[in-house]
Design a protein around this nucleic acid. Sequence first.
DNA 1: ACCCAAAGTTAAGAGAATATTAATAACCAA
DNA 2: TTGGTTATTAATATTCTCTTAACTTTGGGT
Lengths: 223, 223
Amino acid sequence: MAQKILIVDDEQDIVELLKYNLEKEGYKCYTASNGEEAVAKAKDKKPDLVLLDIMMPKMDGIEACRLIRKEDSLQGIFIAFLTARGEEYSEIAGFEVGADDYITKPIKPRVLTSRIKALLKRKKEDVESNELVVGDITIDRSSFDVVLRGDRLILPKKEFELLYLLASKPGKVYTRESILNKVWGTDVSVVDRTIDVHIRKIREKIGNERIQTIKGVGYRFVV
Amino acid sequence: MAQKILIVDDEQDIVELLKYNLEKEGYKCYTASNGEEAVAKAKDKKPDLVLLDIMMPKMDGIEACRLIRKEDSLQGIFIAFLTARGEEYSEIAGFEVGADDYITKPIKPRVLTSRIKALLKRKKEDVESNELVVGDITIDRSSFDVVLRGDRLILPKKEFELLYLLASKPGKVYTRESILNKVWGTDVSVVDRTIDVHIRKIREKIGNERIQTIKGVGYRFVV
DNA sequence: ACCCAAAGTTAAGAGAATATTAATAACCAA
DNA sequence: TTGGTTATTAATATTCTCTTAACTTTGGGT
C-alpha cells in the first residue's frame, strides 16, 4: 500500500506544488493549512510522514509537532519541518521537539522527493518490527497487548512502554535516566520514584523475576 | 570516550569554524581537505561521523562517500554532506550514495551542533553496548554482567567498575591513586582500606589468582 | 630473623538506593 | 460532568552497598 504523507502549509501554492510532485512519486497525499487542522488530520489519516510548515496561523508547526508526538496512536510517525532559510531558532526548536528532518524553502522538487524517499525508506525498515517475543512473553505494539503464557494482560500505556523498552533488549541495563528519556520524553520532569512505582506495577503483573534491579545502575529484563 | 568527527572541506575557514564549535561540545575532531585524505583518515581514525563537503579538489565528497561506504572496517559510520545552497544535483546524489544527512551552507553553528547531537545520540547508544572478553571472563557494560566460564555473576556497581577498569587493560598495574580517581572520582575521599575490601569481594567471586597485588604499587588483572 | 609498612580480613554501622503503600492529581470516555 | 482508570507524588519501610575501624597477615629490607 502507498505510504501516506500529510502536507501542512498555509500557502496554498506550496501545498499544491508538494502534492503534485509527491503524488507523481506514488505517495498518497493529504493536506492541511494550519496546525490544528494538521493534528486533526494526522489522527484521522495516520500518515507515515508529516511535512510541517513552521510559520502558520492559529497554531504553529512546533506546537503541532508537540501534540502529534504526544498522541499514542501516532507513535512511529515521521515529522519533517518546512522552514525558510534563516529561521535558525525554529530549526533548533524543531529538533528538540522531535523532528526527524527539516527541509528548507524554497523547495526544489527533485531534492524534496529524493529526500523523502530516503526518509520513508528508513521508516519502512523500522515498522515491521513491532511484535516482540521474549521467553514466554509476547509484546505487541500494534494491538498494545502483552501475552504471558497464553494469558492476555492489559497494561496501561506507561507500563506498556516501559516494559516494551526493557524487553526490546533483554539483558541490557537501562539507567533511570535513559528510561526517562525514552518513555517519558526529554522535556518532562518526573520524580525518580515514579519509575519504581511503574516497575512495581509491571512486576505485579508479569512476576518479580523478569525485571531485575541493578542497584545504582538501573533495571533490566531477563529471560 | 568522546565521539569522533572527521571534518572534510577544502576551505580552511570552514574547517576551523566547525572544529571550534564541535570541540566546544566535547567531540574529538579530525580534519581533511580533500576526498583522498578523507578516506585515508577515516580508515585511520574510525570516526563516528564524517562531515563531508561535496565540491573538493582531487576527489569530491560523493566519491569519497562511496569509498567509505565500501570499506568493511567502517560499517556503522555516519556521513553527513555539507552542501552549498543551490547544489541541487549533489544533494540527490548524496542521498543515493548513502548519506545520513546533509547540512547546508552557510553553516549556523547552533543549528549544526544541535543537529549533530541528534545524529550521534542514536549512534552512541548502540556503540556503548560493548563487552570485554579477557580469558574466560566476559564483562559486559550494557548488561552489567560478568560471565565466568558460563556462570553469570552479579557484582555491585563499585565492584563492577573496579573489575572493569582492571580488566580493560590486562597486565597493566593500576596504582591505588589511579583506581581512586577512576572508580571513585577525583573529589571524594575514602580510606585506603576501602579498595582492599572491594578487591577482596571481587576475588571471592572470580577467584584469587586473577587479580594480583604488586606490593607498594597497586593491582593488576592477569589472564 | 626481625621489623615495619603495606595489604588482607572481618564484621558492623552508616548511608544510599529502591520498594511499597496510600493518597492525590490528571486524564478519558460515556 | 461524572465515574473510573492511570499517572504521579509523598511518606515510610526495606534492602543492599559502601565504608570504616580494628585487627591480622604478608613480605621486602636491613
